[in-house]
Amino acid sequence: MNGAPSTVWFDRKRIAPNVPEDLESIDPMCEEIGKVIQLEVDQGIPRNKIIVGGFSMGGCLALHVAYRFQQEIAGVFALSSFLNDNSKVYKDLASSDCRRPPLFQCHGKVDPLVLYEWGESTKDLLIKAGVMCQFHSYPRLYHEMNKDELDKLQAWIDQTLTSS
């Protein structure tokens, strides 16, 4: 926003994969999501029955939560999302033999904000790091969601929670 404050999950210098991540703003948000997860656990929901996810920056944050802080959860989804090329997520996965929750990811091929190639590269690097991923692309989808995507997500959630 050219230096103007805005309400988002964390700070970005630019919407591009080749810039450094701002871990000073990402990590505290991951801790906050961790507190929400802990509240659910305290209410009797097992961690292996919890899925985190989101759209755009929310999906990016969910990837950080699932692969850096909450590896015991059932799964993670990221819609129209990407990780920076030098993401701490990739570094942590490469240096650890921790559990890797399965990933559901979708991306529109004509997304003008978060380019399709960024989402596809994120998927490829996560698979290379040992993450099981279900990836769906949509030829005419912009930076938005559609019914088919949400139907597939619902089926994936149902299957993931049944098998966990």
Rank of each mutant, 00 (worst) to 15 (best):
R47S: 14
F104Q: 07
G53W: 12
P5L: 03
S95N: 15
Q105A: 14
E31T: 14
T7L: 12
F82R: 03
S6K: 02
K128G: 00
L39I: 03
G130V: 08
K128T: 07
D158M: 07
A74D: 13
R99P: 01
I33T: 08
W118M: 12
V8R: 02
M145I: 15
Q154T: 13
E32A: 14
K13I: 00
F104E: 05
Y67L: 12
E24S: 15
E32Y: 07
A78L: 10
I15F: 05
K123M: 06
L113Q: 09
Q71V: 11
N84K: 10
D158T: 13
E21C: 09
S137C: 07
C60M: 12
Y138E: 06
S80T: 04
P28W: 05
Y116E: 06
C133P: 03
C133M: 12
G44D: 05
L79H: 11
W9C: 13
N146L: 05
G130W: 06
R14K: 15
K91M: 06
Y90F: 15
R99H: 11
I15K: 00
Y138G: 02
L125C: 06
I127P: 00
S6T: 02
K128P: 02
C30M: 13
P28Q: 10
R99A: 13
L161M: 11
G54V: 06
M1D: 02
P101D: 07
Y142N: 08
D22G: 02
E40N: 14
L141I: 04
G34C: 09
I157F: 08
C98M: 10
L103S: 10
F77S: 10
S164K: 12
L83R: 12
P101R: 09
L113C: 02
G53V: 12
L150H: 04
S96D: 09
T7D: 10
L141N: 03
N48L: 06
V36S: 11
S164F: 03
A129Y: 01
L93P: 13
Y90Q: 08
P101M: 08
I37N: 11
S81Q: 04
I50Y: 07
M1G: 03
Q105R: 03
V19K: 11
D42E: 15
D11I: 02
I33L: 15
R140I: 07
N146P: 05
Y138W: 05
L61H: 09
R12M: 14
D148I: 05
V89R: 11
T162G: 15
I50Q: 07
V52Y: 09
P102G: 04
V41F: 10
I26F: 04
E117C: 04
D158Y: 05
A4E: 00
Q154H: 11
R100D: 06
C98H: 10
H136E: 14
G34E: 03
M57A: 10
D42V: 05
D148W: 03
S87I: 08
L39Q: 14
D158I: 09
L63H: 06
E21L: 06
Q38W: 00
